[in-house]
Design a protein around this nucleic acid. Structure first.
Lengths: 409, 409
DNA sequence: GCTCGCGACGCTATCGGTAACATAAAACTC
DNA sequence: GAGTTTTATGTTACCGATAGCGTCGCGAGC
């Protein structure tokens, strides 16, 4: 240990040497430091005698051990540049030895800032959904390395229908900013939060109201792209499998489909526009019926990948080949769609990006108090061409058509 | 306003009248209150002059406005019984008027307690799963009305493989207690948390290690019950559709099936024990193959409801009737199983209860510092008899058998 | 030699709330 | 009616971290 002192740069050594050296030769130590130092040895001993760590160590403990003030400790711990090399070493060593951990609660109180983002779900079912999982993962990615965290606020549990309550709730407790996931079309819900004077982002649908920020995916554009792609492949008879009508994204996707069809002067056959629920099973059964009929589309655009799986399964059961006899397009590009047989042609939706963008925006607002800026962002989707869609194969599909209704009940 | 004073009970009036009255007639006010009162009028004015609320109101603001001390305010706000009726009214009115909101951060600092439960997921995929959603809902239910909240800690984001890091992380920041959701069989993961000296509950599997608490569902018992039920119905040829082998619950369910078969001296046909993945699709395709063969079981026990759906779909596609030609049992009793056609006979798993029990345990430990108790609980499952399973129907199934392989490729 | 500037560090107050102790006045007690 | 208890409230000292300002020692510049 003492030989370490040799390496001490002259400049830093003016004020302090390693603690051990100080005691050994008692030189070079400023008077004020001296006093605290001897005083502290007693206190340190007391702490040690307590045996097991009863109380968490705080900065003042480090201060005592090192003979420095808490202020110096605080500064060294936060500012990489602060202090003599020697001081830094002492503090850092002591912190490690005592197993010091910052008390974030105290830091937040002092800073009068809450390092937490409240994530609020507009309805319960969201929790178990892939979409939400992805968004949250995106948020977490951004938050990693910052001091911020995610607090899950349950809309149901906390009576958030009452604007007053949700206001006080969020501010009282744990939210420096809010991310409200509210993908339902007609929900008035998010408006309860806009008066909070808290940084806020709505996720899951555009929210035109006032100057409220939102992040969403361009569902409309994505649906247009897929429809357009199918049309360019040569399809004219394109069916559509809808999602739950109460979801904003579902209706946007339908709109994209219809508009694009209209744009190309193609007729939308209403019997080929089916009401699904974003689940595989319903899509499967619906398509089992639809595809058994002689009069069926050459392509089906399913509003999400799960339903596309159902469509393909139904087709295959009926002896139709995908894509030769039926082209299928999906939406979302969920995990598994690339490995699906046939690999699913779909629209990639950057779900994680939603979370990332929302979180990044909030952090920016919070750090810079840059409250003026408002985020209105629709993230772009991407057409992923794989093998579940191809140009319509006239003769092939005709040949299939002859044996189409064999397995019907 | 002044007539209100008439209604003041004599007892309370001794110490204080409404503020306005105090100023009006200056009587009955204790000397110490008088002084602060005049002093405070100045300060109150200053606050009002600032215009917009720049700073959040704190207890001291209420104290100034009412002419009471912060301590009294604090006590009135927390204790329903404290103080004169008049004092209470004044404080409460002022709090409401000023729009006071407790600062939980400060409260936590003072109490040296963290009113947050960290929920940790052992792997990412969990977030989007129904199981997790249900557990979390259960947790929230218990936490509603308490001061506690859920903080989501992302295992991946925070480098929790390093025990050191996860320790400091949880304590530094935001967790009075931890709920670790770790349903994987072989994970060493949770052991990183047991040394934290933080109240901890493992969810998703029993955790024999040391004196660590866990809450789980009796998957084994549930599987036994279902198998037993099928056997009692008269089935001897019972197939089993497994869940992902890395999950603890999946292997417990398989074990229950095997043991019960053995107990009844029934042979487990390994070709009828199929590897599923808890998803509908795979189950569907596997069963499409299995059920097309002449040599097939009369009943299939699927390790979860989703897969049971798949089994039934496959059977129906093949022209088998459920339950006449094939009995199907599931596990979980998820939403939808009752409305399924045929209504699914299954094992109800109290997923929300898992969360409830875990949360309640933590709250108890935290409130009473009752660290000694350890929770080892396997929640009971319940056999829900609906219509997807019935006694094997010899002649019926035989008649089906003759036309079994018509729709195969 | 003296002032000025600067780097390193300490002291004090503070964030908002609260336990523990203190105090004033009324109520009760014999 | 003096002493004791009770009721209603105020004071002080923190919890742990940190901003702001003050102080010390030393070298540079004139």
């Amino acid at each position: 240990m003492p030989n370490k002192a040799d390496a001490i740069p002259d400049r830093g050594a003016r004020y302090a040497l390693s603690w051990q050296n100080e005691l050994a030769n008692g030189m070079q130590i400023p008077r004020y430091a001296r006093e605290t130092l001897t005083l502290n040895r007693l206190k340190v001993r007391q702490i040690a005698m307590q045996g097991k760590v009863v109380k968490k160590v705080s900065m003042s403990d480090i201060a005592r051990v090192t003979g420095l003030s808490t202020m110096t400790v605080s500064r060294v711990l936060r500012d990489d540049e602060f202090g003599t090399e020697m001081t830094r070493k002492r503090v850092l060593a002591a912190a490690k030895k005592l197993n010091y951990e910052v008390n974030f609660i105290a830091r937040q109180l002092k800073a009068n800032q809450i390092f937490q983002l409240g994530v609020i779900l507009s309805f319960e079912g969201l929790l178990g959904q892939h979409y939400f999982g992805q968004v949250l993962q995106g948020i977490q990615q951004v938050l990693t390395g910052t001091d911020y965290h995610v607090v899950l606020l349950d809309s149901k549990a906390e009576d958030f229908d009452d604007p007053q309550k949700c206001a006080s709730f969020c501010r009282e407790r744990h939210a420096g900013g809010l991310i409200v996931v509210a993908p339902r079309k007609d929900e008035l819900y998010p408006s309860n939060f806009i008066d909070l004077k808290l940084p806020l982002v709505i996720v899951g649908r555009p929210f035109e109201h006032q100057s409220t920020s939102y992040v969403d995916v361009d569902n409309y554009g994505g649906a247009c792209a897929m429809t357009d792609y199918l049309i360019r492949l040569g399809h004219t008879e394109i069916g559509f499998l809808k999602g739950p009508s109460e979801l904003h994204d579902a209706s946007q996707r339908e709109l994209g489909y219809r508009k694009t069809m209209a744009k190309h002067k193609l007729l939308v056959q209403e019997k080929w526009v089916m009401q699904g629920d974003y689940e595989l099973r319903k899509a499967f059964h619906i398509c089992l019926q639809l595809l058994a009929q002689s009069d069926r589309p050459t392509a089906i655009f399913a509003a999400n990948d799960q339903m596309a799986y159902g469509v393909i399964d139904a087709a295959q059961i009926l002896g139709l080949r995908v894509p030769e006899d039926l082209s299928v397009g999906g939406f979302d590009d969920i995990e598994g769609s690339a490995e699906f047989v046939p690999a699913l042609t779909t629209i990639a939706q950057p779900m994680q990006d939603i979370g990332r963008v929302a979180a990044r925006y909030l952090l920016e607002v919070l750090d810079k108090s840059n409250v003026s800026s408002v985020l209105h962002q629709k993230l772009h989707t991407r057409l992923v061409i794989r093998s579940s869609a191809s140009p319509p194969n006239g003769p092939m599909s005709a040949s299939v058509r002859t044996r189409r209704n064999r397995p019907s009940p």
